[in-house]
Write a protein that binds this DNA or RNA. Sequence first.
DNA 1: GCCGTTTTCGGCCCGACTGTTTTCAGTCG
Length: 585
Amino acid sequence: MDKAQVAAVLNEIGTLLELKGENPFKTRAYGNAARALEVLTEPLETLVAEGRLGEVQGIGEALEKKIAELVQTGRLGYYEELKGSVPPGLVAMLAIPGLGPKKVKALNDKLGVETIEQLEHACSSGKVAGLAGFGEKTQAKILEGIAFRRAYASRHLLSDALAAAEPILERLRAHPDVIRCSTAGSVRRFKETIGDIDFLASSRKPAAVIGSFTDQPGVLSVSARGDTKASVVLAGGLQADLRVVRDDEYPFALAYFTGSKEHNIVMRQRAIVRGLRLNEYGLFRSAEETRDPARRVRCRTEEEIFERLGLAWIPPELREAQDEFAAAELGPIPRLLEWTDLRGALHGHSNWSDGRHTLEEIADHMEDLGFEYWAVTDHSKSSFVAHGLDAGRLRRQIAAIRDINRRRADEGRTFRLLCGSEVDILAEGALDFPDELLAELDVVVASLHQGFSRNEAEMTRRLVKAAENRYVHMLGHLTGRLLLEREPYPVNTLAVIDACGAAGTWIELNCNPRRFDLDWRLWPHATRRGVKCVLNPDAHHNDQAGFLRLGAGVARKGWLRAADVINTLSLGLLQRELNRKRGRR
DNA sequence: GCCGTTTTCGGCCCGACTGTTTTCAGTCG
């Protein structure tokens, strides 16, 4: 079993233990261990084989044994026994708002409910309202939750959340009673998928701000509305929450509601060690009084809160309780990539394959946006559903691009299209075009589009072989995942990263919001191995140049700086790097 | 189940809200 599978089992054990009514700290330990595994940069098997698993923070004696059993045998007796003792439908019920482990357990114990369908039936017939601790409102809320779940997905793409958030934030900014406002939560942290959208505002008249929020266009229903807090459901099933605080509380509330939960826990622990107490209202000098402004440490910005806790300011994207505290203790966090650092992109499509626009339209649009270069990398012949190019059409496209560039040069314009291909990686890692043809191109992206059902060893071998080809500049969307749709194909990403490091091959961060592939969690490891990143929109339409802005936020989550990203280079320096891979000067 | 410059036991982040209660448990973020 690989670490992702082990982590999934540990998370599930945590959930199952919750449903059995176990000590909440024990159940949390499983979640913590799963998170610790996800960011390991050494192969899990190595740690297990060398008996060093216990050295990982969050993994003790008991979990070390359980994880070793999973890695070595692919099974865990404890897990199977536990799983057998809890009806699988109970886990699904936890996803219904208002239902936690205690209530689900009560429903199961007292009514024998084991599935969501049975729960719906029990609610409809009024049995749930009669239980101790339940009532009419809870029963109605459960029914509503079941219907909502059926109608909408529970998580959303970052791009959808941002598109919904921007007009709401504009409206807040324009409101006369709003002093400061921001998105918070996972949107502000640029998580690749989002549960709900959080907003924070400061005001002297919270009721007016709350009213404007719940009454705005696009709100389908209001699920909660208090004095300082409201929740609404937007079109598409997205939920949006607004908290309104006093302006002197704003920086504390912003830090608090940005999270992540795990990051906040460490922040609070740091406060406690310093004899302070941290919550969403402030940082306080007394352990007892947690609202009194007179005892609050004065901080006007998030920066000052971090400073008071012995830390440099941590950009929201990094607040995932991974390595940000260790880094922020040492001094300022390095300047992370900004999307405005990007000078162009190296993976995009035209209407020669499955893109929308002509070469001229692409050149004009990208030049207008201020880019210096843009690579056209249409599909190769094996991707026939995408109208992949054969050798003849590719050579004609090269000529067409050279012609466009020549005309621009004559007019004294510096923008250039680059000739490229997104060449298919075939079985056994062979490429869809011969090396002689690849050598005629400026840029080569190698990607997998077929044969996803091979096993991990084969998939890894194919990618490693492609990475070792001197004409391949980078691997495209390395794991093939489609967020909320399709899992990554099985591949040993660490081994592929190592091979890229050795061969000087770059790895793409595909900025299509359905992909964001390679995952941000792996970039710190890739950077340590000397692998450069390329931020690519994989654009099929000119509007998709905007994907680069989203991708830059995700790149920041991976601690990427401008120097780690190839397409921050000017055209001249880029061309030198493109040639260097091929052993040319 | 983990962890230790209060180290092998006794803690483990903390407050708001909701609905069900008559003093609070459960859920959520």
